[in-house]
């Protein structure tokens, strides 16, 4: 298992040839109370950088971009019913989508937790 972060504050955790995607704890804090998430359909093919999901607070809406290419194999329907789960556990139970990785090397260029922490601190 490897977890990497993007500059747009998504995280991706690989599990073999699959990966789970969500938004970082920092990102949920910036958004504030999350009130709605829009998830893709299972089976959808995502290119790296495609909009994978949308997350909304009262006053903001943000796209969640796919940090790596792949096919959506599962979505976290529990955050659709209770979006506050993303606030409570953005990097755990509040995950968004699970994909089958098309190109595992996609994540090599992304930041690890330490680099992302430094990136956030600098912004």
């Amino acid at each position: 298992m490897t977890t990497r972060y993007t500059k747009d504050s998504e995280w991706i955790r690989t599990e073999g040839d699959e990966a789970v995607i969500g938004i970082s704890d920092y990102a949920q804090g910036q958004l504030g109370d999350i009130v709605f998430v829009e998830l893709p359909e299972v089976g959808k093919t995502l290119a790296k950088g495609d909009v994978a999901a949308v997350v909304e607070s009262v006053k903001a809406a943000s796209e969640v971009y796919a940090p790596a290419a792949g096919e959506v194999i599962a979505v976290n329907t529990s955050i659709k019913d209770d979006p506050s789960a993303v606030n409570r556990g953005a990097e755990g139970d509040g995950w968004f989508v699970r994909i089958k990785l098309k190109n595992p090397a996609d994540i090599d260029s992304l930041m690890d937790a330490e680099a992302y922490g430094a990136f956030v601190a600098a912004h």
């Binding site: 109370d33 009130v35 709605f36 909304e56 607070s57 009262v58 979006p83 506050s84």
Partner: peptide, 8 residues
Amino acid sequence: LDETRAAR
């Protein structure tokens, strides 16, 4: 007013 509740 609780705008989060209104939206959720």
